[in-house]
Amino acid sequence: MGKKVLITGGTGLVGSHLIPLLQQNGHEVAVLSRSKDTGKPYPVFEWDYNNNYLEEGALEGVEAIIHLAGAGVADKRWTNERKEEIYNSRTKTSFLLYNMLKERPHQVKTFISASAIGFYGMDTGSSILKETAPVGHDFLAHVTDAWETSTAKITDLNIRLLQLRIGVVLSEKGGALVEILKPPVAAPLGKGSQYMSWIHMEDLCRMFVFALENEALIGTYNAVAPRPASNKELTRAAARVFGKTFVPIPVPGLILKLMLGEMAGMVLGGNRVSCEKIMKEGFDFSFPKLEQALQNLRSKEKG
């Protein structure tokens, strides 16, 4: 039986892919947005975490919430104001949902929250990271840890909670892959040997649906493909598949730090993250191999 699912961040890169998949699987979708948009093929309800506001009726009939909201960590330079927005857009939205679920009548039984492998720190070398690995010490680790802590309060309401720590999402419509292919030539960044724990957008969205429909699942899962690639390997493969020139000379870290400031740590560092836990639960990847994933995205781009 399909469920009624309320989604935050539904207009973002992941949400815009996830909504059609949920509908294809027989689920009814409603979306929380900062602005009312009546032109969407699903109900849209307003919310505002700064004013602790959630539109009446937003929770009506809802059995599950998928929480994707959060300002993009790579969209703008990390000024103090931007850092505050990145932090608040994750934690304050989680607290708002908790408070509304605590105060209002509802039927919500499942809460699935996005998280990120940034939890482990921006650079963890070649160590294989399972979900039990400790939290890192940099800005993104601090944000992600607080994000997970804020959503963990949901369990106080006897609601099943899952947190998916998302890796580098590969999509032909945005994100890391588009940035890699944007320059005239593709080149590795920094050392080039740093790991990129990637996942195809389709597999990520299928993982959210898997988490929704398998009610025995609970807790934290890494949302990455089985075979992480180095920055150099991923860049070379993307250039080959998408017909770009690959130059093996790395872009120096110093230049990236001058261009990006503290944000440079996201591309100069890396994580080698394990998806063993979700696979043991029965999740089967459609795109476990990088070349296969890139070929599929190339065919979609040609469309």
Results as ranks from 00 to 15, higher is better:
residue 32 L to S: 01
residue 196 M to D: 06
residue 207 M to D: 00
residue 255 I to H: 01
residue 97 L to Y: 05
residue 204 L to A: 06
residue 208 F to E: 03
residue 184 P to C: 02
residue 238 A to Q: 08
residue 9 G to F: 07
residue 146 A to T: 05
residue 158 N to C: 05
residue 210 F to C: 06
residue 104 R to F: 09
residue 240 R to C: 11
residue 240 R to A: 15
residue 214 N to S: 03
residue 116 A to I: 02
residue 21 L to K: 13
residue 39 G to Q: 13
residue 290 L to W: 11
residue 299 S to M: 13
residue 89 S to T: 14
residue 175 G to D: 12
residue 255 I to L: 14
residue 173 K to Y: 11
residue 131 E to Y: 10
residue 72 G to Q: 04
residue 10 G to E: 04
residue 137 H to G: 02
residue 102 K to E: 12
residue 143 V to E: 02
residue 21 L to R: 14
residue 155 T to P: 00
residue 32 L to Q: 01
residue 176 A to R: 09
residue 75 D to K: 13
residue 188 P to Q: 05
residue 292 Q to Y: 12
residue 122 M to Y: 12
residue 3 K to T: 02
residue 206 R to I: 01
residue 76 K to C: 00
residue 224 V to M: 08
residue 84 E to G: 13
residue 5 V to N: 11
residue 38 T to K: 15
residue 8 T to C: 05
residue 121 G to F: 11
residue 227 R to P: 00
residue 139 F to S: 08
residue 284 D to G: 11
residue 184 P to K: 10
residue 26 G to D: 02
residue 206 R to K: 12
residue 197 S to C: 10
residue 291 E to G: 15
residue 219 G to T: 05
residue 5 V to Q: 11
residue 96 L to V: 03
residue 143 V to L: 03
residue 112 I to L: 13
residue 103 E to V: 01
residue 39 G to F: 05
residue 22 L to M: 06
residue 56 E to T: 11
residue 208 F to G: 01
residue 184 P to H: 08
residue 277 K to T: 12
residue 149 T to P: 00
residue 103 E to M: 09
